[in-house]
Amino acid sequence: MKIVGISGSLRKNSTHAGILRTVAAHLKEKGIEFTVVDIGGFPLYDQDINDQGLPVNVQQAHEHLAQADAIVLASPEYNYSVTGVLKNALDWFSRVENQAFNGKAVSIMGASPGMGTARSQYHLRQILVFLNAFVVNKPEVMIAQAGGKFDDSGDLTDEGTIAFIGKALTSLIKLADQLKK
């Protein structure tokens, strides 16, 4: 099985990159291949650019997603919604023929100082309906009060949350297996 992650935050020490490092550690223990796709260099979506051909970095990222059995989106909440960089990437991916989210299992995870990205995750679920992705319903990984759960490098240190992410990944793997049948 192959799983690909995307962070909706570009910061070097982002807690969302830290979530993906936690995901990587869990999946490594299960013998599952995990890679993270970088969306930071994508141009702003523009149909005129798309008409000239998909940018190389978008095409490469999409190829990784297309080869995956499942996807993990780890993203903060900006202004009660999805981050601009993640929304931009999803807009690009939605324009690719045979777009990679179609029919795939997706787990959404996020952390924040407050409510744990709940509003952003609900907006992501709406976007993923258009992409025909199948989102893991439970457990929802909304890490509230994140300040005390991550270190200065953005690594997740809270053992309960680390274990909870493991449960979410078990659900993701189960859903991905069901969708393969």
Rank of each mutant, 00 (worst) to 15 (best):
residue 54 L to E: 14
residue 113 P to A: 11
residue 159 E to Y: 00
residue 22 T to R: 02
residue 149 K to L: 05
residue 105 A to G: 02
residue 89 A to H: 02
residue 176 A to E: 09
residue 100 A to E: 02
residue 18 G to Q: 03
residue 37 V to P: 08
residue 110 G to N: 11
residue 34 F to T: 13
residue 145 Q to E: 10
residue 90 L to A: 04
residue 39 I to L: 07
residue 115 M to K: 07
residue 68 A to R: 01
residue 81 S to I: 06
residue 11 R to M: 03
residue 97 E to T: 15
residue 41 G to N: 12
residue 41 G to Y: 01
residue 129 V to C: 08
residue 99 Q to V: 09
residue 15 T to E: 05
residue 36 V to A: 12
residue 22 T to G: 04
residue 158 D to N: 13
residue 149 K to R: 08
residue 126 Q to K: 14
residue 33 E to L: 12
residue 71 I to A: 01
residue 162 I to D: 01
residue 54 L to D: 11
residue 58 V to E: 07
residue 133 A to W: 03
residue 45 Y to Q: 05
residue 119 R to V: 00
residue 73 L to C: 01
residue 125 R to V: 04
residue 159 E to N: 04
residue 12 K to P: 03
residue 82 V to K: 04
residue 105 A to F: 03
residue 47 Q to L: 03
residue 92 W to V: 13
residue 38 D to M: 07
residue 82 V to I: 15
residue 181 K to L: 13
residue 7 S to T: 10
residue 158 D to H: 09
residue 69 D to S: 13
residue 157 T to E: 00
residue 20 L to M: 00
residue 13 N to K: 13
residue 45 Y to G: 10
residue 91 D to L: 09
residue 3 I to P: 06
residue 137 N to P: 07
residue 158 D to K: 05
residue 70 A to D: 00
residue 27 L to Y: 06
residue 61 A to G: 15
residue 181 K to W: 06
residue 132 N to F: 02
residue 95 R to H: 15
residue 147 G to C: 11
residue 41 G to T: 10
residue 16 H to Y: 03
residue 133 A to Q: 10
residue 12 K to I: 12
residue 93 F to L: 11
residue 145 Q to Y: 13
residue 66 A to W: 02
residue 42 F to W: 08
residue 164 F to M: 00
residue 56 V to E: 14
residue 32 I to T: 12
residue 44 L to V: 10
residue 61 A to R: 07
residue 176 A to P: 07
residue 61 A to F: 04
residue 95 R to F: 02
residue 10 L to T: 12
residue 33 E to Y: 07
residue 175 L to G: 03
residue 91 D to I: 06
residue 25 A to V: 02
residue 52 Q to R: 14
residue 87 K to R: 04
residue 95 R to K: 14
residue 87 K to L: 10
residue 141 V to F: 07
residue 20 L to V: 03
residue 172 L to C: 05
residue 1 M to N: 10
residue 177 D to Q: 15
residue 143 I to K: 01
residue 180 K to M: 05
residue 52 Q to C: 13
residue 150 F to S: 13
residue 84 G to C: 09
residue 127 I to T: 15
residue 94 S to H: 08
residue 45 Y to H: 08
residue 82 V to P: 04
residue 71 I to K: 02
residue 33 E to A: 13
residue 38 D to G: 08
residue 2 K to W: 05
residue 102 N to M: 12
residue 84 G to E: 04
residue 47 Q to G: 09
residue 113 P to T: 11
residue 29 E to S: 05
residue 157 T to P: 01
residue 36 V to H: 00
